[in-house]
């Protein structure tokens, strides 16, 4: 197992490097750099700007700049952010963590809601409940997430239920430990619901399909012939087998969430990797953009890796072959 993980990581490294190089090239394609805006300021002398450019290697040939950045990567230095005036590493760490919290919350919500709904729909196949859920799933998949975000923010503003975006209230530091958690949860509600909706819709349909497939299997007949109570047949035998193929989905969802969350982060003002990326792109903050991309790619990769590991763990047929 550890060898398998190592192999996957080794294969990923050239891919990540290629991706970062692509990003670098893209950033350089736009004429000008961050300091152009400074050049317009008459108070800053051209010499100062030239010195800055020298400091950040912007006067060297492009390829050298890139190599310099990669070299620093190995020292875990991600470069410097011109816009925020801090080393990129620190920024990314904090923001990545926030994005992770949001993604995790969405994942939990998705699975908590979708699995029972899927089971319910399968067990009550073709009933009113099943058809209603099917309709809702369809609508949920088609509703643009940003639209839902706007509507929910509006509703929250009218009825003063929840904070309108951001991650912390202004008075966060005055709260107790429990109060802080509540505050975080309240801020999490809207972005989490928005992000989860389409995942719930999709997962519910898949779960329903899997359950129906499993319920047709021989071992379910055996379980009933053994005289097991129906709840055991459904919740132990059927469920366990139906969820199995979804375990890989879990990992891929985690990685998919990171990208999908970006837009909602921006709309709801959640201080995560996505909104950082937007700011960086707007400001042409080269190293910040590249590092964010890299981080995004790494998180995606991690998600896929977790998916594969989980698959191997959950299905003994794969494990013992």
């Amino acid at each position: 197992m550890p060898r398998y993980i190592l192999k996957r990581i080794l294969v990923a490294i050239p891919l990540l490097l290629a991706m970062s190089f692509l990003t670098f090239v893209l950033m350089q394609m736009t004429p000008g750099n961050f300091f152009d805006s400074l050049k317009l300021d008459p108070q800053i002398s051209l010499e100062t700007i030239a010195r800055y450019e020298q400091l950040y290697q912007l006067d060297k040939p492009l390829f050298q700049q890139y190599l310099h950045w990669v070299k620093n990567l190995l020292k875990f230095e991600f470069g410097y952010s011109f816009f925020y005036n801090v080393p990129v590493g620190r920024l990314i760490a904090a923001r990545a963590w926030n994005t992770f919290i949001l993604s995790l919350a969405s994942l939990i919500l998705t699975w908590l809601v979708a699995i029972p709904l899927g089971i319910w729909a399968a067990v009550r196949r073709n009933s009113f409940v099943d058809r209603f859920l099917s309709l809702c799933s369809f609508a949920g998949l088609s509703l643009p997430s940003f639209f839902l975000a706007i509507i929910l923010l509006y509703i929250a503003s009218r009825w003063n239920l929840l904070p309108l975006g951001g991650m912390r209230s202004a008075y966060y530091d005055d709260l107790t430990w429990a109060g802080r958690i509540t505050d975080l949860l309240r801020h999490l509600v809207i972005p989490t619901v928005v992000i989860s909706l389409s995942s719930i819709a999709a997962l519910q349909r898949i779960m329903r399909g899997n359950m129906l497939d499993v319920l047709r299997q021989q071992y379910i007949l055996t379980a009933r012939a053994k005289g097991l109570p129906e709840h055991r047949v459904i919740y132990r035998h059927a469920l366990r087998n139906a969820v199995n193929p979804l375990i890989t989905l879990f990992g891929y969802e985690l990685s998919g969430l990171l990208g999908g969350a970006a837009l909602i982060e921006i709309i709801c003002n959640w201080p995560g990797l996505g909104s950082l990326m937007l700011t960086a792109v707007r400001a042409k903050d080269v190293y910040l953009v590249m590092s964010s991309m890299l981080m995004g790619g790494v998180l995606l990769l991690l998600g896929n890796l977790i998916a594969d590991i989980l698959l191997a763990w959950s299905d003994p047929r794969i494990r013992y072959d």
């Binding site: 990923a12 891919l15 991706m19 990171l258 990208g259 999908g260 970006a262 837009l263 996505g274 990326m277 937007l278 792109v281 964010s292 991309m293 995004g296 790619g297 998180l299 995606l300 990769l301």
Partner: peptide
Amino acid sequence: MVPGFYLML
């Protein structure tokens, strides 16, 4: 492998 939205930006 690249997060789509990030690449778009």
